Simulated scan of single mutants.
Amino acid sequence: MMDQPRVAMPDAEAGNPDKVPRTERGRRTLRKLLDAAAVEFGERGFHDASISGITRRAGTALGSFYTYFDSKDAIFRGLVADMSNRVRDHVAPAMEGATGAIDAEGRALAAFLQFARAHQEIYRIVDEAEFVDPDSFRAHYATTAERIAARLQAGGAGGELRDGLGEVEAWAIMGMNVFLGLRFGVWDTEDDVAAVAARANALIADGIRKR
């Protein structure tokens, strides 16, 4: 018998910390609500989206919503955290077996481009978060940059990268990745992900100065 696909379970911060599901069934219901919210907010935007629309898409009762979230604002905030975590969880395995820090960044970008193609709604949701919930918006990018900075510092400690790389370089790489995801993950899904990631990775490794 074929293995069933793994259902990504939301982290605690994706819901109300006081309403964390204690059972597998509860975690699956929360997952359904978050997935439905991603579609609802992605298609309709925050202001036109509704709790009833979310529960209808999730196939759950209205009462189930309030088991995990107090309001539309609360599930939106949880959704931003959830999507940030899902990007992290999608990218991390792709970097396993990398031959070094530069290779790891290329693998990370390729994985992100694949995620962006599969979850194009992430761009609208995160962009709206800047105005709906600025703290979530800032946390999404800050935690992503922290992970990149940690990888760069590890690469410096290992002797592959130059010393002193940190926040500025991490935000620069993240900015490049974000807009490459928009261009080649949302606007155009025909280009080869590996080829795009390889060219961007060459930019990280060699810069743009003629040698």
Score class of each variant (00 low, 15 high):
residue 131 F to C: 00
residue 6 R to E: 14
residue 57 R to F: 05
residue 84 S to K: 06
residue 158 G to T: 00
residue 159 G to L: 05
residue 32 K to N: 13
residue 10 P to R: 11
residue 149 A to Q: 13
residue 90 H to P: 00
residue 106 G to S: 07
residue 114 Q to F: 00
residue 122 I to A: 14
residue 80 V to M: 01
residue 34 L to Q: 12
residue 181 G to N: 11
residue 123 Y to Q: 09
residue 177 N to H: 15
residue 176 M to C: 06
residue 202 A to C: 07
residue 20 V to L: 08
residue 172 A to I: 03
residue 164 G to S: 09
residue 42 G to L: 13
residue 49 A to W: 06
residue 111 A to D: 03
residue 103 D to Q: 05
residue 27 R to N: 08
residue 24 E to N: 05
residue 45 G to I: 14
residue 161 L to S: 01
residue 45 G to L: 12
residue 136 S to E: 06
residue 29 T to D: 04
residue 146 E to I: 06
residue 112 F to E: 08
residue 135 D to H: 11
residue 53 G to H: 12
residue 64 S to I: 01
residue 2 M to E: 11
residue 156 G to M: 01
residue 136 S to L: 01
residue 44 R to E: 11
residue 64 S to P: 00
residue 161 L to K: 01
residue 199 R to G: 03
residue 194 A to C: 04
residue 172 A to S: 08
residue 18 D to M: 06
residue 47 H to F: 08
residue 4 Q to A: 11
residue 94 A to Y: 10
residue 114 Q to S: 13
residue 185 G to N: 03
residue 36 A to G: 11
residue 181 G to D: 03
residue 170 A to M: 10
residue 90 H to V: 14
residue 143 T to F: 11
residue 144 T to D: 08
residue 132 V to E: 10
residue 17 P to W: 02
residue 202 A to Q: 14
residue 144 T to A: 12
residue 158 G to K: 07
residue 179 F to W: 11
residue 109 L to C: 04
residue 1 M to C: 10
residue 19 K to M: 13
residue 170 A to K: 10
residue 67 T to G: 05
residue 2 M to P: 15
residue 170 A to G: 10
residue 137 F to Q: 05
residue 70 D to T: 11
residue 118 A to E: 11
residue 6 R to H: 10
residue 188 D to L: 05
residue 43 E to K: 08
residue 118 A to N: 09
residue 37 A to C: 07
residue 148 I to H: 09
residue 152 L to Q: 03
residue 141 Y to H: 15
residue 22 R to T: 11
residue 182 L to A: 04
residue 191 D to G: 09
residue 208 I to Y: 13
residue 48 D to R: 14
residue 6 R to S: 12
residue 207 G to W: 07
residue 29 T to A: 09
residue 83 M to D: 02
residue 38 A to T: 08
residue 158 G to R: 05
residue 185 G to F: 10
residue 153 Q to C: 07
residue 40 E to Q: 15
residue 32 K to T: 11
residue 182 L to V: 14
residue 66 Y to D: 06
residue 75 I to C: 02
residue 17 P to K: 04
residue 145 A to H: 01
residue 133 D to L: 02
residue 156 G to I: 01
residue 77 R to E: 09
residue 210 K to R: 14
residue 146 E to S: 12
residue 81 A to R: 12
residue 183 R to V: 11
residue 10 P to K: 06
residue 160 E to F: 02
residue 149 A to V: 04
residue 148 I to W: 09
residue 196 V to F: 04
residue 161 L to P: 01
residue 31 R to Y: 10
residue 175 G to H: 01
residue 22 R to N: 11
residue 25 R to P: 00
residue 102 I to R: 09
residue 35 D to L: 02
residue 61 A to V: 01
residue 32 K to C: 13
residue 150 A to G: 01
residue 5 P to I: 03
residue 200 A to G: 15
residue 106 G to V: 09
residue 89 D to Y: 12
residue 96 E to V: 08
residue 80 V to G: 05
residue 78 G to M: 01
residue 64 S to D: 10
residue 30 L to Y: 05
residue 146 E to D: 13
residue 81 A to N: 03
residue 33 L to R: 04
residue 101 A to C: 04
residue 49 A to D: 06
residue 148 I to P: 10
residue 96 E to S: 07
residue 25 R to V: 04
residue 124 R to P: 12
residue 211 R to A: 15
residue 38 A to V: 01
residue 33 L to V: 06
